[in-house]
């Protein structure tokens, strides 16, 4: 799963702020590392690989309704430092187009970045085991394992995000139990409105109990115990406002289909490129930059 499609305002603030902090630290470190290693000359390459990933994410494979991510390919081409930078850029432009939230950009950078870096590492590890002639197979295997890991990462994020108190899960004039709007004119036209001060729920509650004066004390105590017990159950139910189990079930059921498609596409592209320009795949795109600027063969510029 290359990026999380969780809207703004669903995950707790501390989580996405932490995501932003970690992502900015990662991008800062990667930027410094890239500048030191002379990778600044690869700015256009980062740009086109990021653009390529965005193009991939916007192209549906006909007739299967699935968009590819090309993140493992990006990782193989760019290596770890530039991958983190690319992940941030891809996440930012997708967020600008509404594809992924702005607040979850930090977490998305971590997910896409992890996918690119893990994909790069696994691809080279697999390649050492099976040899360069099977680069396409290695890329496919690396993609499946990488996507399984990052999908688990996303489920972990939702698990952390869903584990917060949802006491303020208020939903407005709609009654969540009946899904019916509360009648604003229930108490007369002039009683309601901005000057009325709203319902006094505590008062209503007390009033209800006052009405129960016919009951004897034992029954009343039992009744309150039951009510407290019921309140505890409701509180426990509302403790999580995201169902992690159901989310994981959906993701792990549909996910493998996507992993397989992504693996086939990655294997196809890497196999094609490995046949045409093997250095790009085996040594990374940074290895290729030996042509001088036209008219600057002496390197004086």
């Amino acid at each position: 799963m290359s990026h999380i499609h969780i809207p703004d305002g669903v995950l707790p603030v501390w989580l996405w702020v932490a995501g932003w902090a970690v992502a900015l630290a990662m991008v800062g470190a990667a930027g410094v590392l890239a500048s030191r290693s002379g990778a600044r000359r690869k700015v256009p390459l980062v740009g086109v690989v990021a653009a390529l990933m965005i193009v991939g994410m916007s192209s549906e494979i006909v007739p299967i309704a699935y968009h590819i991510n090309l993140s493992v390919i990006g990782g193989i081409l760019l290596g770890p430092a530039l991958s983190v930078v690319t992940a941030f850029i891809v996440g930012l432009i997708l967020a600008m187009l509404g594809h992924g939230g702005v607040t979850v950009l930090g977490l998305n950078t971590m997910v896409i970045g992890a996918e690119m870096v893990i994909g790069w590492a696994l691809f080279h590890a697999v390649l050492r085991a099976i040899g360069r002639p099977r680069a396409a197979l290695g890329a496919g295997l690396a993609t499946v394992v990488t996507l399984a890991i990052t999908t688990t990462f996303v489920v972990g994020i939702v698990w952390i995000g869903g584990a917060v108190d949802a006491a303020a899960h208020e939903t407005g004039a709609l009654d969540p139990a009946t899904l019916r709007f509360e009648d604003p004119f229930e108490h007369g036209v002039f009683e309601i409105g901005l000057f009325g001060g709203g319902h006094d729920h505590d008062h209503d509650h007390d009033h209800d109990h006052d009405d129960g004066h016919d009951h004897d004390n034992d029954y009343e105590a039992h009744h309150y115990d039951d009510e407290d017990h019921h309140d505890d159950e409701v509180a426990a139910d509302s403790e999580r406002y995201l169902s992690v189990g159901r989310f994981a079930a959906v993701v792990y059921t549909l996910g493998p289909i996507g992993w397989l498609i992504e693996a086939l596409v990655t294997a196809g592209i890497i196999g094609y490129v490995a046949g045409v320009r093997p250095r790009m795949v085996f040594e990374g795109a940074l290895a290729e930059d030996k042509s001088p600027i036209p008219g600057d063969e002496s390197g004086g510029h």
């Binding site: 991008v27 890239a34 740009g47 086109v48 990021a50 653009a51 432009i93």
Partner: peptide, 19 residues
Amino acid sequence: VPGIVGDALLMTYRSLFLL
């Protein structure tokens, strides 16, 4: 953000049209 990120952002957007 680091200079490389800012520059790459502009390059990405420009490359999108071409790609």
